[in-house]
C-alpha cells in the first residue's frame, strides 16, 4: 500500500501553491500530485518522499490534512499497459474512486495509484490476477 497525503484547498487562485510551497521550504520532495475539485473547494492529493514530516509541516502551517492508503500497481509503459490492468478492476468489480500515475523516467515502469472502496479485498483480488503491486516507489524509503 502507498500512503497519500490529502490537503483541503479553496478553489481560488494561489491555493495549490501554498501547501506545495510549505513542503518545498521544508525540503520535502513531492513525487506525484493530483487534484479533485468542485466549483468552490479542491482536494490536493500528494505522494511525497517523507510523509511523516510532510504531515507535520502542513498541519503546523494550518492545513486540514489526512493520510490515506492507496493501491500502487506497476504498469508497463507501453500502449495497452493501463488497459490490461483496468480490465482486472472491471472483471472483479472493484470500484475506483480516483487514480493517477507516477512515471519515474521515460521508458521505465510507471506506477498507478488507485483509491478504492475496500482496499484489502481489492488487493487480494489483484494478487490473484498476478498484478505487480508496488509496496514502495523508487526513492521513497520513509513512510508516514
Amino acid at each position: 500500500m502507498i500512503k497519500q497525503i490529502s490537503v483541503l484547498i479553496e478553489n481560488v487562485p494561489g491555493q495549490a501553491y501554498k501547501p506545495i510551497n510549505v513542503l518545498s521550504e521544508a525540503g520535502i520532495d513531492v513525487c506525484a500530485v493530483s487534484v479533485g475539485d468542485t466549483e468552490d473547494f479542491g482536494i490536493l492529493r500528494m505522494i511525497t518522499r517523507d510523509n511523516g514530516n510532510a504531515i507535520n509541516v502542513l498541519k503546523k502551517a494550518g492545513f486540514t490534512v489526512n493520510l490515506v492508503d492507496l493501491i500502487g500497481v506497476v504498469v508497463e509503459d507501453h500502449p495497452g499497459g493501463l488497459a490490461n490492468l483496468l480490465t482486472v478492476f472491471e472483471k472483479e468489480n472493484i470500484n475506483i474512486e480516483y487514480f493517477y500515475s507516477f512515471i519515474p523516467r521515460k521508458g521505465e515502469e510507471a506506477i498507478m495509484f488507485f483509491k478504492v472502496e475496500e482496499i484489502n479485498a481489492a488487493l487480494d483480488k489483484l494478487r490473484e490476477h498476478k498484478v505487480t503491486l508496488a509496496e514502495t516507489i523508487p526513492g521513497v524509503d520513509k513512510w508516514g
Binding site: 497519500q4 490529502s6 483541503l8 479533485g36 475539485d37 468542485t38 473547494f41 482536494i43 492529493r45 498541519k59 486540514t64 490534512v65 489526512n66 490515506v68 474512486e97 480516483y98 483509491k115
Partner: peptide, 18 residues
C-alpha cells in the same frame, strides 16, 4: 473548518457534507 480526522480525500464525501 473541518476536522482533520474527518476530512476526506474524496470529492464526493466533501460534496455530500457540504
Amino acid at each position: 473548518e473541518i476536522k482533520d480526522e474527518l476530512f476526506s480525500d474524496e470529492v464526493k464525501n466533501l460534496q455530500n457534507l457540504k
